[in-house]
Design a protein around this nucleic acid. Structure first.
Lengths: 171, 171
DNA sequence: CAGACTACCTGAAGT
DNA sequence: AACTTCAGGTAGTCT
């Protein structure tokens, strides 16, 4: 889907992550109805720990942000500016199509990968039918559409963490 | 009414003007009802350009401030610390009483003035019935009570600008 | 009460 | 040049 290199603000005292508008509107659309106050997105990290982040739109700055809960995640994962957060689409129904041909071991997590992450964004933009981002070997247990979110300290993979977000949210 | 010599903070990155409490409560009272979030005051400068500043009370610092919009005015007018902002009451009904006996030409604006600005504050404080501040010769076109606000680089008049504020606000 | 959170705001930069 | 975006802020409330 997309990725973002974390800014100092994203990991600092502002306790929020700005999601670039274009990506936010494409992948995490908020309906105009009752979602003016945002929604809670449920994530799950590599250890199956649940993380819930509030996702909303700030009219004043015309920005989409993850707010409540984000700072706890930054602290727990020791995220630093320069780390990159990658959001990846992964629907249950398209899970099979995403089977990869390489396995990368990161932080004790086996990850399958079809192509190197550096080249994935352009390829992904070129066509949804051939997902290339790394994906965990964890099995999805819900029928919802899922996304993967992970981050790394650019350009190495030293600080990769895997997290999965359910979208659209269902609670 | 009153004047304030601008501090570095008033023209700096804080993007706000602190209005001395005594003056604020006397001339720009905020009702306790729906005005906890402040009001927008509409000003008009010597070229009839409209300036809208948010005026509110900051509980944390127990201060009355002009916030939103103020920084644009500072930048546009190139205000500097040391410049003095003068707030003058000028009601439509009291306009005639304010007829002055001197005309000062400042930045292309004819200003009438009864006494030198340096001595006006004390005199004004002594009695509302003999307003002495300079006032433009522009005609008021609203039935609302108006105030004048202008600033100058103390102690000369090199940076005078005239601006008029409607108070109480009606929109 | 300190830190988290909400909802604002702005300047700089890009388009 | 006007407009949009967003990184870095603020005040005030909540927990």
């Amino acid at each position: 889907m997309f990725e973002k290199a974390l800014t100092p603000s994203d990991v600092g005292k502002l306790n929020r992550l700005v999601i670039p508008k274009q990506q936010a509107e494409k992948y995490f659309p908020l309906s105009d109805s009752g979602e003016n106050k945002g929604v809670v997105l449920s994530f799950e990290d590599e250890s199956c720990k649940c993380w819930r982040f509030r996702y909303s739109y700030w009219n004043s700055s015309q920005s989409y942000v993850l707010t409540k809960g984000w700072s706890r995640y930054v602290k727990d994962k020791r995220l630093l500016a320069g780390d990159v957060v990658c959001f990846l689409r992964r629907g249950r129904q398209s899970h099979q199509k995403q089977s990869c041909n390489k396995v990368l071991r990161l932080f004790g997590v086996n990850m399958e990968c079809q192509t190197p992450p550096e080249t994935q964004d352009k390829q992904e933009e070129a066509g949804e039918s051939t997902p290339q981002y790394p994906t965990t070997t964890h099995h999805m247990t819900s029928s919802s559409t899922y996304h993967n979110l992970y981050h790394y300290h650019h350009p190495s993979y030293a600080h990769h963490h895997m997290i999965q977000v359910e979208y659209p949210p269902h609670n």
